[in-house]
Amino acid sequence: MSKAYASIVCLLISLAVLSPVRRHWNPAISDSFPLSWYPMFRGVRPDLEQVAYVVGRSRDGAIRVLPYTYWASGGFNQGRNQLNRIVSQGRARVEQLCEQIAETVADRSSDADLVEVAILMGEFDRDRYFGEGIVTPSQVRAFDTCPVIR
C-alpha cells in the first residue's frame, strides 16, 4: 500500500462526507444515506401542528389512540411519515389503510372492546398542549372511519 492510495481514499471520503453541505443552499435536493445534510434541523415549527393519527372507538364510545405499530414496521418516524404520505394520497388509499388497521384490531384480544377505527387529522397548539395541559385538538377532521369486523 502506498501513501498515494491512502491519500486518495482520505481525500475522496472526506470530500464525499462534506459534499452534502451544498444542499444548504439548494434545499430542493432530498436527504440521503449515508451522506446527509441533516435537513431535520433546518426548519422552524409552525405554531399549530397538523397531526395525522389513528384512534379506536369502543362500544361505550370511549376513544383511544392506536400507535404506529398497527400499520408499520420499522420504527416510529417511519410509521408517522407513512401515515402522512398515505393521507396525502387520497381517499382510496386511506380507506385501504383503515381496513388494514381494523383487521389488525380484530385480531388482537386486547382490542376486543373496539368497534370502529378512524384516521383523523388534528390541529394542535404545542404551547397550549405542553404549557397549559390542553391536550384536545382545536380542530379535528376524519379522513375515514371503518368498522372492526370480527
Binding site: V44, E49, V65, Y129
Partner: peptide, 16 residues
C-alpha cells in the same frame, strides 16, 4: 424547545 415539543406531540399520538 419547539423541535422537542413537536416530536413529543407526535409520540403522544402515535407512539405506544
Amino acid at each position: 424547545r419547539d423541535q422537542i415539543a413537536y416530536d413529543a406531540l407526535y409520540k403522544e399520538l402515535l407512539h405506544p
